[in-house]
């Protein structure tokens, strides 16, 4: 079974994503900021990361930069944000994200991209 790590400081957002992903048969783990997420990424195997940008302590960009710089994993990462500015978009890819989604996210949209990024059959 494939493992997905959801990184978001809002517990409701984590629960929302968790429900969608678990309904499609994925294993899900959660972290509330970048440092916690790095700790989890260091001790477990994840096939995909869903990363919020604005989080206390360590934000989404810093998390991804560390993940890639330390070569912890090359598993794909989806960055989610409430902002639509191009600048953030560029910074997301520069940090090592594979996809940038703007909230609010619809379940079908999320699943389409998740499957695509994990090299599974696209919906």
């Amino acid at each position: 079974m494939k493992n997905i790590l959801i990184i978001d400081d809002a517990s409701t957002v984590r629960l929302y994503h968790r429900n969608i992903l678990e309904a499609s048969g994925y294993e899900v783990d959660e972290a509330t900021n970048g440092v916690e997420a790095l700790e989890k990424a260091l001790s477990g195997q994840f096939d995909l990361f869903i990363v919020d940008i604005n989080m206390p302590k360590m934000n989404g960009y810093e998390f991804l930069q560390n993940l890639r710089k330390e070569n912890i994993t090359q598993s794909p990462a989806v960055m989610v944000s409430t902002e639509a500015a191009d600048l953030d978009h560029d910074q997301a890819f520069y940090s090592g994200a594979n996809l940038y989604l703007v909230k609010p996210i619809k379940p079908l949209q999320l699943m389409t991209y998740v499957r695509l990024l994990m090299g599974e059959e696209s919906a």
Binding site: N33, E39, S43, K57
Partner: peptide
């Protein structure tokens, strides 16, 4: 306890026995 909940001053280091 996790430093991640406290401050971002430190780097996380993973060793075989502990973080």
């Amino acid at each position: 306890e996790s430093m991640g909940r406290i401050s971002s001053l430190y780097s996380v280091r993973k060793f075989p026995a502990a973080i």
